[in-house]
């Protein structure tokens, strides 16, 4: 198994623990919880960048800031699209499934990633699995 797959699974496990923690979070504290996550991430990231004497380039910061802004807009629109009469069991599978499909297409077309037939099957089965799990 390639080393990057191991790292991707570690990312999955760590992110999964965050989701499990969120599951235990009292609903009235959701808006308290999110700023803490971002502030911790920001402090550690900038602290590491300074401590490790990484060059701080505006382009790198700008790309990250754009990703952060787009991520926020995505989450905000997701919350709005979950408002009644929409159902989470319909919204989540569509959002997760379609966005992963777009990413897979961008990977092949934009980044020229080559997938074997087995890899293509893995993409299809993986998307199906996430769609079903997000529905349940």
């Amino acid at each position: 198994m390639s080393r990057w797959i191991g790292l991707a699974f570690l990312a999955m496990l760590l992110n999964g623990v965050v989701l499990a923690i969120q599951k235990c979070l009292p609903a009235q504290y959701t808006n308290h919880f999110l700023p803490l996550i971002y502030v911790v991430g920001g402090i550690v990231s900038w602290g590491a960048a300074v401590a490790l004497k990484r060059p701080i380039r505006l382009a790198h910061f700008g790309l990250g800031a754009a990703a952060g802004l787009v991520s926020y807009v995505g989450n905000y629109c997701l919350i709005r699209s979950l408002a009644p009469p929409s159902k989470a069991s319909v919204v989540f599978p569509i959002v997760f499934g379609t966005s992963m499909l777009i990413v897979a297409l961008v990977s092949v077309v934009g980044f020229k990633e080559r997938l074997t037939p087995r890899g293509i099957c893995a993409v299809i089965v993986g998307i199906a699995s996430v769609v079903i799990l997000s529905q349940s």
Partner: peptide
């Protein structure tokens, strides 16, 4: 991109 700077930008806007 420097990962720490990229993540710094991402988390700053998120925060």
């Amino acid at each position: 991109c420097e990962s720490w700077v990229f993540l710094g930008g991402l988390y700053t806007l998120g925060a």
